[in-house]
Design a protein around this nucleic acid. Sequence first.
DNA 1: CAAAAATTTGGGTATACTCCAAAAATAAGC
DNA 2: GCTTATTTTTGGAGTATACCCAAATTTTTG
Lengths: 149, 149
Amino acid sequence: MNEQSCPEFTGLELSPRKVDYLKFILEKGGTVKTTEISSSLKVDPSTTSKTLNELAGAGYLNHVPYKGVDLTELGEVYAEFLVRRHRILSLLLTHYGLSTEEACSEVSRLEAFVSRDAVNKICSAMGHPMVGVCGEITHEKCFHEEHHS
Amino acid sequence: MNEQSCPEFTGLELSPRKVDYLKFILEKGGTVKTTEISSSLKVDPSTTSKTLNELAGAGYLNHVPYKGVDLTELGEVYAEFLVRRHRILSLLLTHYGLSTEEACSEVSRLEAFVSRDAVNKICSAMGHPMVGVCGEITHEKCFHEEHHS
DNA sequence: CAAAAATTTGGGTATACTCCAAAAATAAGC
DNA sequence: GCTTATTTTTGGAGTATACCCAAATTTTTG
């Protein structure tokens, strides 16, 4: 026991805003255009364009200029973690008297600073819940980490 | 019910680092010197000096140049909230399989982004615990908010 | 294929946080 | 009490995040 879970990433790699971009791209699915992201995140398209470039440079996205972005394999794994983290933490807060909306907005503010290790421990302690307050919770990585070796 | 609790502050006023300064100053107690803060937070004294000035400008500290700082009334109330927030959140995380050290370091990363409303709700849901994992939890404000009007 | 729409680039602003070097003030030693 | 040593502050500068505007570019459409 205590093999430190799979050390591919800590969950602290991305800035708060980049987390938003990746979560949106995963939830939208497929190839996503700059405009969609901009209107959803309420930022200027030029801001989106630059951020997308940075995320592509870091290996999370494939960016075909003027066409759009889609997640790389790494990006997909990572974004799934980000969404799972958001949902686990939101669910957690609703157990302490926060409404769904309060929990979600609270978590949106802090999620980028919660480590993967902490999320996995919380997830285990909660019994790997399948239903979150803002969407289904998927546990692929979570189960693997708990069961192998 | 739902009188929005006392709206003096949201708990989101200060940046992560400023939270560290204020927590340290409260826990140290009395007049605190630049050097003490610098060595505790491991930053250059010039950084401390500037940050102290900003906190004084925002009304949290009295700063007597070359002598040291101490908390204003606002600063004291606020810093007590900051310490309580840290302890409530740390205690919370230890209920989910995190060790004291893990909980504390996790919370240190995210605490600045947790609202006072959320802390008060969590605090109530936990039954206003008096003993945290990294120190006693005081509930002055918490009780007042829950009981009046 | 020209006009419209989307996207990117270049340039700039703001906040947070940091350090170094030099100036200023306080504290200590003789 | 005055000179040295220490502490603190100031000035200058750098990095990272995050944002916008205007202009250039590319794609799409009528």
